[in-house]
């Protein structure tokens, strides 16, 4: 899991890794923003919760409608007012909405998780 690679994602403010439960295991934070390891730990827990429910929805949707293509999930993004968090597996990034490149972010975290 190469955090330095994640830091190359456009608009990135921080990159982080976390356990399956959401505990922070590593982070790189660009200077000059409010993010701290404590904030990233809270964010990772939020994302694990959202991802778990998204999995429940994806699985239910596929079973109910017969439409496949979601599982296994490749990521989740929380689009906040000014920042977005993009996570998958045990990796995530925080990006500025203004400069966000969601495709690049999903690709980078998939590579990080692999």
């Amino acid at each position: 899991m190469d955090l330095a690679k994640l830091m190359e994602v456009p608009g990135v403010m921080a990159a982080f890794t976390y356990t399956d439960k959401g505990d922070l295991t590593g982070q790189m934070i660009k200077e000059g923003n409010e993010l701290t390891p404590q904030v990233l730990d809270l964010l990772a827990h939020t994302c694990v919760a959202n991802m778990a429910v998204a999995t429940m929805e994806a699985r239910g949707w596929e079973a109910l409608t017969g439409q496949k293509g979601f599982e296994p999930l490749q990521g989740f993004s929380l689009v906040g007012l000014d920042w977005s968090a993009v996570v998958n597996g045990n990796c995530g990034v925080v990006v500025k909405n203004r400069d966000a490149d969601y495709e690049a972010a999903f690709a980078a975290i998939s590579a990080c998780t692999a």
């Binding site: 429910v53 429940m56 239910g60 109910l64």
Partner: peptide
């Protein structure tokens, strides 16, 4: 809010 939405989603499945 969370648990309520989860209950709604779960019961729809």
């Amino acid at each position: 809010l969370n648990v309520s939405m989860q209950a709604e989603m779960f019961s729809s499945f």
